[in-house]
Simulated assay, not measured.
Amino acid sequence: MKRLTKSYDKKLVGVCAGISEYFNPELDPVIVRIGFVVLCFFNPLVLIAYLVLAIVLPDPGVA
């Protein structure tokens, strides 16, 4: 069973790369990171969601 976790390929805490690996392993994490930044301009709640995911998601070795 596939689980959403943080990634080893991290720039801050690995949330965007973890999301990228979960939905499509061949998807470049940079695209997800750019999407998060763009969405933060339109809706600041995305930043809060990122912070919550950074706290809640397990590290990649734990899962």
Rank of each mutant, 00 (worst) to 15 (best):
S7I: 05
Y22Q: 06
E26W: 03
E21V: 06
V56F: 06
E21N: 14
L47P: 00
K2H: 10
D59S: 05
V62K: 13
P58G: 02
P29V: 04
I48V: 15
S7E: 04
N43Y: 12
L53P: 04
G61Y: 09
I31T: 11
K10Q: 12
S20L: 07
G18H: 03
C16F: 07
F42V: 10
K2T: 02
V37L: 14
A63G: 12
T5P: 00
S20P: 05
I31R: 09
M1K: 14
L39M: 14
D59Y: 09
K10F: 14
V13A: 07
P60A: 00
C16P: 00
K10H: 10
A63L: 02
A17Y: 07
C40L: 08
F36Y: 13
R3L: 13
P60W: 01
P44I: 10
G14A: 07
M1P: 09
N43F: 13
P25K: 14
L47K: 14
V30R: 15
I19N: 00
G35A: 15
F42M: 12
A54F: 03
L4V: 01
P58C: 00
K10T: 03
M1Y: 03
P58F: 04
V62N: 01
I34K: 11
P29M: 02
L12D: 13
M1W: 05
N24M: 07
K6A: 02
E26V: 12
Y8R: 15
L53K: 04
V30M: 11
A54S: 15
D28F: 06
V15S: 09
I19T: 06
F41M: 06
E26R: 13
D9I: 05
L51F: 09
I48F: 15
A63D: 08
S20E: 07
R3A: 08
P44N: 13
V52N: 01
N43L: 07
V62Y: 03
I19R: 00
S20Y: 03
V56N: 00
P44K: 14
V15Q: 06
A54E: 07
K2L: 04
L57G: 03
K2V: 05
V38F: 04
V56R: 10
G14E: 03
S20C: 08
